Simulated assay, not measured.
Amino acid sequence: MRDLRGRTVVAGVAESDLGVTGLGSLDLAAQAAARALADAGLTTRDVDGLFTAVAGRGMAPLDVGEYLGIRPRYTDGTMVGGSSFVSHLHHAALALDAGACDVALIVYGSALRSEFGKLPAGPPEVPNYEAAYQPRSPASGYALAAARHMHEYGTTREQLAEVAVAARQWAAMNPKAYKRDPITVDDVLGARMVSTPLGALDCCLVTDGGGAVVMVRAERAADLPKPPVYVLGAGEAHWHRTISAMPDLTVTAATESAARAYAMAGVKAADIDVVQLYDAFTINTVLFLEDLGFCAKGEGGAFVSGGRIAPGGSLPVNTNGGGLSYCHPGMYGIFTIIESVRQLRGESADRQVEGARLALAHGNGGQLSSQVTAVLGSAATL
Rank of each mutant, 00 (worst) to 15 (best):
D3E: 10
A11W: 04
D17T: 15
L18R: 00
A30Y: 04
A36E: 11
D39I: 03
D39V: 02
A40N: 02
R45P: 00
D48E: 12
D48F: 07
V54S: 03
A60G: 08
D63R: 12
V64H: 05
G69V: 12
T75N: 06
G82H: 10
V86W: 03
A95H: 05
L96I: 11
L96S: 12
D97C: 10
A98Q: 10
V103N: 09
L105C: 02
L105I: 09
V107G: 10
V107K: 10
G109Q: 04
E125G: 11
E125V: 15
N128D: 14
Q134H: 08
A139P: 00
A145P: 01
H149V: 09
M150F: 06
T155D: 07
E158W: 08
Q169H: 02
P175V: 09
K176H: 05
K179D: 02
R180T: 11
V185R: 10
V185W: 02
G190L: 09
M193T: 12
G199Q: 06
D208R: 01
G209T: 04
G210Y: 00
G210C: 04
G211M: 02
M215S: 05
R217F: 09
A221G: 07
V231T: 13
L249I: 07
K268Q: 13
Q276E: 15
Q276T: 14
A280K: 04
F281T: 02
N284Y: 01
N284P: 00
T285W: 05
V286L: 03
C295D: 05
K297A: 14
G298H: 03
E299K: 13
G300M: 03
G301H: 05
R308N: 06
A310Y: 08
G313D: 03
S314I: 12
L315N: 08
G323E: 09
L324S: 02
M331H: 15
Y332W: 12
Y332R: 08
F335S: 13
I338F: 01
E339C: 10
A349V: 15
Q352T: 13
L360K: 13
G363N: 12
G363T: 14
G363Q: 13
V375L: 07
L376H: 07
G377F: 00
A379D: 13
T381P: 01
L382T: 10
